[in-house]
Design a protein around this nucleic acid. Structure first.
Lengths: 193, 193
DNA sequence: CTTAAATCTTTACAGCGTAAAGATTGAGTT
DNA sequence: AACTCAATCTTTACGCTGTAAAGATTTAAG
């Protein structure tokens, strides 16, 4: 409720929020620093007090959306038995449905991606992508309980991630036509193997 | 070997080729119409005689790369028994390896994608993405031979595509670290299910 | 109250996509 | 061979972009 004054008061968060709105409404192609600044009622160069470049603002926006994504993933297995394969299915379904509900986010998060993941999964890798970390930990927990050796679980983790990530990629392609009840269909496709 | 003259002689193809080279060497972020024009030794506006916009040139470039991709996929199953699941594995492996060899192409082909696919696969859908069509036809052929009903095969096709497409997406992420012999590993991951 | 740091504005510049108008060339007609 | 027209290319120009630089305003600390 801040009145118009020289200082915005909350410009950094304001830019991130306005930027995400702009992406949602018009897509990344029509995103520009100047437009975001205008949406916040500040001048062209004002964002440079908080972000050293357009890319830095985009990264902050990506991190914000990733946080939201991660929160939904965690919520999806909150009441599940974390030793059961059912939990993995729930998590995978949530992964895909997030992008079906927010199709713009897929390209936004993964084009020029910030994701840094160690697929060797040696527990010392710099894995800065929490959604993958959730899937990795849960899968190791479930399959270790079933007595599977670690090396095999590694392949399963990658396979699971590839499946849900690939499904999200395919189902958010602009021209895709589909008549399914995806909520159920996704589960069928994930479980099928 | 054309000497410098007012007319370029082969500008349309020249722009497509120079554009793809630019993408390969510097990435899509540094791609611009003016730079491609300069690479071809013509003026800023010359491309507009052949493409009505930057997007149209990019589409032509995407189609060119997709043709190359499709050719490699066809070649990968040229000597295979097309009634055997082995052929599907070969095709899937080729799908992923293409993008491992050409990491820049993944984002280039699928961000702002031209892909138009009917996942209902009613044989009347407008499917303009030949790589998917190859996978779809081959999979139906193999699994029909095995007596599987069409509805189940549909899910398998989507699952297969999601897996290889997702693998390609993951393995071409910029920060991914991996120590594997992927050629073999990919097969393990695809077959695992 | 003074000063410094943080935040915002103004101005400026090069690069971008592309519209418009004009120059050059080659191909076809006569 | 001369004319004509369409295709192809250049020049110029406009508004938008990212961002560097310098200056204004406000807040916070001493």
């Amino acid at each position: 409720m801040a009145e118009k004054s020289y200082h915005h008061g909350n410009l950094k968060e304001g830019l991130i929020e306005a930027g995400i709105n702009l992406i949602n409404e018009e897509g990344e192609k029509h995103f520009s620093l100047r437009r975001v600044a205008a949406l916040c009622g500040v001048s062209n160069a004002a964002p440079y007090s908080h972000f050293k470049s357009k890319e830095e603002l985009l990264k902050a926006m990506q991190n914000h959306v990733t946080d939201q994504f991660t929160a939904e993933l965690k919520k999806s297995i909150k009441d599940e038995d974390l030793d059961s394969p059912t939990a993995i299915i729930k998590l995978g379904k949530c992964y895909v449905m997030f992008f079906i509900r927010n199709p713009q986010y897929f390209e936004f998060l993964f084009s020029q991606s910030l994701v840094r993941v160690d697929l060797n999964m040696n527990d010392d890798g710099a894995n800065n992508y929490p959604p993958f970390e959730l899937l990795r930990k849960l899968t190791f927990r479930v399959f270790r309980k079933m007595g599977m050796p670690k090396n095999e679980i590694k392949d399963i983790v990658i396979s699971e991630w590839a499946t849900v990530h690939g499904l999200a990629a395919i189902l958010t392609m602009k021209g895709i036509s589909y008549d399914y009840d995806w909520e159920q269909k996704i589960e069928d496709i994930i479980v099928h193997k």
